[in-house]
Design a protein around this nucleic acid. Sequence first.
RNA 1: GCGCCCGUAGCUCAAUGGAUAGAGCAUCAGUCUUCGGAACUGAGUGUUGGGGGUUCGAAUCCCUCCGGGCGCACCA
Length: 573
Amino acid sequence: MLIKNQLAALVKDAIIAAQNSGALPAFAIPDVYIERPQRKELGDYSCSLPLKLARAAKRAPLEIAQAIAAHFPRAEAIAQVEGAPPGFVNITLNDAWIARQVETILAQGARYGDVEPARRDALRIQVEYVSANPTGPLHIGGGRNGALGDTLANVLNAAGHNVQREFYINDNGTQVRLFGESIFARYAQALGRDESFPEKGYQGAYVIEMGKQIAREHNEKFLRIPRAQAVRELGRLGIAIVLDNYAKTLARMGVRFDNWFSERSLHESGLFAQVFQILQDKGLTAEKDGATWFAAQELGEDKDAVLIRSPQVIAEPDERPTYLASDVAYVWNKLVVRNFDRAIYIWGADHHGDVPRVLAATRALGLDPARAIIILHQFVNLKRGGELIKMSKRAGEFVTMDELLDEVGADAVRFMLIAQHANTTMDFDLELAKKQSDENPVFYVQYAHARISSILKKAIESGALSDPSTLLRASGGDVALLTHPAELDLIREILRLPEIVELVAAKLEPHHLPHYAISLAGIFHAFYKQCRVVSSDPADAAITRARLKLVAAAQNALARTLNLIGVRAPETM
RNA sequence: GCGCCCGUAGCUCAAUGGAUAGAGCAUCAGUCUUCGGAACUGAGUGUUGGGGGUUCGAAUCCCUCCGGGCGCACCA
């Protein structure tokens, strides 16, 4: 169990003990929250509960804090508990206990950072991300989405949940046909035919390339079949090509999926018809102007929304269901058919207007809307040395994710996309991201990791360490020798990792991870400066072995953090 | 016009309603006989966009104004 959760239980015990002894009056004890004080002189943890209890207990906050401190149960991990004005309980951990944790951290190996190996409240969680329209190259918004989703999935997994990663393929309706027509035109043109380009077609140069490629691979095959069929097949072929490229691009930045889910399948399987029936039975559908609407106003929303468009507007039956129709069926598929406890959606901010409708539909289907969690992320402005790079999708002029990865490198891109709160508009400066210097935090963190690798290698070369596996044995060193303030600071920081994992999993905010990584790297570098690890002096043999354990534990935490962020933890730079 | 998001140090950003609002970069001043100087130590910088309110306590919650972004289709 996390240290802070154990402390919360002890605070509760202390209050009960104080009440039993008459030091505090009887009152109901609320949930106990343990915090980290801002200044480290105040201790490792603190609790502000006395400030909240003052009214119920009819005592001064400081008096309550002191009573809690006086009745605090003894625990080997704790060195000191004291009440401090205006009403905090400050808790300081025992240095010897902290030093011993190095063994625990090493023993957990690559799993260090996991909140609990098997938690009782583990959930089946689906995280769905990127889900960009597969009609053109991935751009940086999709990259931010993917980085957020993948890291979140990593962390939820580390927090003990069962996670599935999904990409939702928008392969239904009008856009497939339009994409198919665009490809058909480029394909025919590539074969020297005089084929006009559709009015609202996809303009980008990549469609021309696609047309040429298909012309090379299939010759005149699509000219010999009926045009409508050719358009449909080319649309699907085009989507397959784009998705294949998405997978490659995303894999470059470590973003992966367990499942690629087809929107079209929601209609072909009859699921939408089934879910529509539920809405109809509840009287939540309406016919108006030839279209079929979701009566969202009945549920308190601003306006109704079209589910199935009028035949007068769209002739083809399979193009009539709207995006919302698919969404309604999809949430049912997630929460009922596949029975996920939670369905997390990661959407770009341009979709924020759809959030209330999807949640309203979830409620309308009789599902707990708290099970569907939509995380929005704001846009990314690409800059080059402070100059905004203008991006025009219509003209097909934009920096693609692949170009960005080519220029900046996957690690820097992924780290920077995660480092900022999802809800803030991000300025991504290409020049800054490319700098391999102090200005770039990714290298700072990776450097710390590489430095540790170098120390371990040096230790083996010098004979101080025979084999890294000996670090796991008591003979590998006595961690009780770790008493230097810089050593203890480093261990304290390593011990924060599981708390960070819990925080990110609870608030669904991955940006805490990069900030922690920078902090951990900084504290390691400070330790490195103050404490020589591999010493040539035989008298230092014992402390060298103890410090090798500490350094290995630090590397363990750093590697895991980078791993969760989705960035490499290099042995050398 | 209506709705959502954002506004914190010169810059980029942190801060479960808690204590003196913190990091990095940049700036200035220091630190190398041995493990990677892509490092470390120290210093200064704030009306948390403005103004009200709630609270024992507000960057955080509520109202209002200002500035920026994004939405407001029988598009996805």
